[in-house]
Amino acid sequence: MTVTAHVIALAAKLLSGFTVRWIDCYPDTCQRVYFANHTSHLDPVVLWSSMPNDVRRVTRPVAAKDYWSQGRIRPFIARSFNALLIDRMEIKVHQSPVDLMIREIGDVYSLIVFPEGGRSSGDEMGEFKSGLYYLAKKRPDLELVPVYMENLNRILPRGEVFPVPLLSSITFGPPIWLEAGEAKTAFLQRARGAVRALKDL
């Protein structure tokens, strides 16, 4: 990892003051998909920064191209934390985001995804988009790790530019897998429930 990557991770830690908890799950460099609730633009950077160094090295956050390719600073930051930028505006049939993700991770990288698709503004999480299901279906070997991120929406809410450095907490939960023959909606509900359950632990 570059020096900038370390600086960004440190800055994210100072700014969001997170406490990290791993519950029934241990940091590992095996291939995983971390899926989390999404409330703030800081989410990908903070979640990535909260991981141990060796895990961080092989983990790539999936982020929105329209936000992270603007200006000069954002693309630079996105490059340093090895973000995988997805075009939300222009989704082609034979070039779907899921195919892109699978191609990019190969047999090395893990992913950080936010299955709600966009930032939810209220206290309740939005419904999960189907990407996580197709990802699990095409790569059944990936461990799907639910993550709950608390308070990030207070640090940098929607539509604000300047963050307020409050404290946050990040909880990693036990991995789930797509069960044989499990329907799409049932799986997405279960995945959403797994993230939601971490809120009260």
Binding site: P157, L166, L167
Partner: peptide
Amino acid sequence: LREFVTMTPTRRGDHRALFWTFM
């Protein structure tokens, strides 16, 4: 201050006032 404000719930409308308070 960080611990105190984290402990007490605030609303979206307080964000700018909080920024002034902290920064």
